[in-house]
């Protein structure tokens, strides 16, 4: 049971679950939850899936909700029960990590739900009720399509256009056109392109400039933008992007490791953004991921584009037996 202070995360419980489940997997400690408990997690995740009904329009609401806050029976309230793309992504990934075979996922419905969120500029919104649209949700869409082996969930050329026009003068990628280059959005764009098999939209020169920008982000740990303090989660966002672009070997691992460990809390074991700060699930998870990228003993290797252990990514390959 999480304390009342986490109420502000009420609609993102699935994401918290993902941080815990994938985090335990990377720690090679998923077995510390017994089989029944893991099954309970699987059932809970499936309970958040939205199925289409007789109404054609209902297909575009499909996917997963982050919580059951508004899981209601009444027909009138249906339009408030739609999937959230980040929750659909973390639901699928969590299911794979837990050993589920995705057989109860309504794949065509999930894909229709994703497609409904794409905007005319190529980006994605998070949900149908009205939300911001940016690079984060392109990543979510790409992981979902890759996982379900069905790219009809996105208009790929449109996505490519959006990513290209979000390349800033600094040489890295912003949340959208004209905005400031950022380590998080750069990860989202590059990981999505890798999953799409379309990294080639950038020239060698552009990729070299990007690699340079990414390497410059190391202070001791990594920062997300020039002249910002280093922050645990960028050890993953920037680090994983460098790995995808084959330049991670040029980072200073000793300094990075020291920084990440300096943000770990003695009492809870969790990691925080900065030293002497409050730890939280996101930074704890990405702190672990950052350590894993450096080959920290006892931690599983990570698939950088999918953001899950290589073990889990291999399991995904085994269960992807359906026709695309």
């Amino acid at each position: 049971m999480m304390p009342p202070q986490t109420q502000k995360g009420d609609t993102q419980r699935l994401m918290f679950a993902f941080f815990a489940i994938s985090g335990l997997d990377i720690l090679n400690a998923l077995e510390s939850c017994n089989a029944q408990h893991r099954q309970d997690m699987i059932e809970w995740i499936y309970s958040l899936q939205i199925q289409p009904d007789d109404d054609e329009e209902s297909w575009s609401r499909c996917g997963f909700m982050g919580s059951c806050t508004f899981k209601l029976q009444s027909k009138e309230s249906r339009e408030y029960q739609h999937s959230h793309i980040a929750m659909t992504y973390t639901a699928l990934s969590s299911l794979i990590i837990l050993g589920d075979d995705l057989s109860r996922v309504n794949r065509p419905a999930v894909i229709r739900g994703v497609r409904a969120l794409q905007q005319p500029d190529g980006s994605f919104c998070a949900h149908l009720g009205g939300s911001e649209n940016d690079m984060r949700f392109i990543f979510c869409a790409a992981v979902i399509c890759y996982t379900l082996k069905d790219w009809s969930g996105m208009d790929m050329p449109l996505v490519e256009d959006f990513i290209k026009s979000s390349l800033s003068y600094e040489g890295a990628i912003a949340q959208g056109p004209g905005l400031e280059a950022h380590g998080g959005s750069t990860y989202c764009a590059i990981a999505a392109l890798v999953l799409m098999g379309r990294l080639s939209i950038f020239s060698d020169e552009q990729l070299d400039r990007l690699r340079n920008w990414l390497l410059m982000r190391q202070v001791a740990g990594f920062q997300g933008r020039p002249n910002k303090p280093d922050d645990t989660c960028y050890s993953f966002w920037v680090g994983a992007t460098l790995k995808l672009l084959d330049r991670y070997q040029f980072t200073d691992k000793k300094k990075n490791r020291e920084f990440i460990l300096s943000t770990q809390q003695n009492l809870t074991g969790g990691f925080s953004k900065w030293p002497d700060n409050t730890s939280d699930p996101l930074h704890t998870y990405f702190g672990l991921c950052g350590l894993s990228l450096m080959g920290e003993p006892g931690l599983k290797e990570i698939d950088c584009a999918l953001n899950m252990s290589v073990d889990a990514a291999k399991r995904l390959e085994q269960i992807q037996t359906w026709d695309s």
Partner: peptide, 18 residues
């Protein structure tokens, strides 16, 4: 009341007000 399934995970200990 919220309709969570039996043995739900990452449950939140909501305040009375919430």
């Amino acid at each position: 009341p919220q309709a969570d399934v039996h043995n739900a995970v990452v449950a939140i200990n909501y305040s009375e007000k919430f």
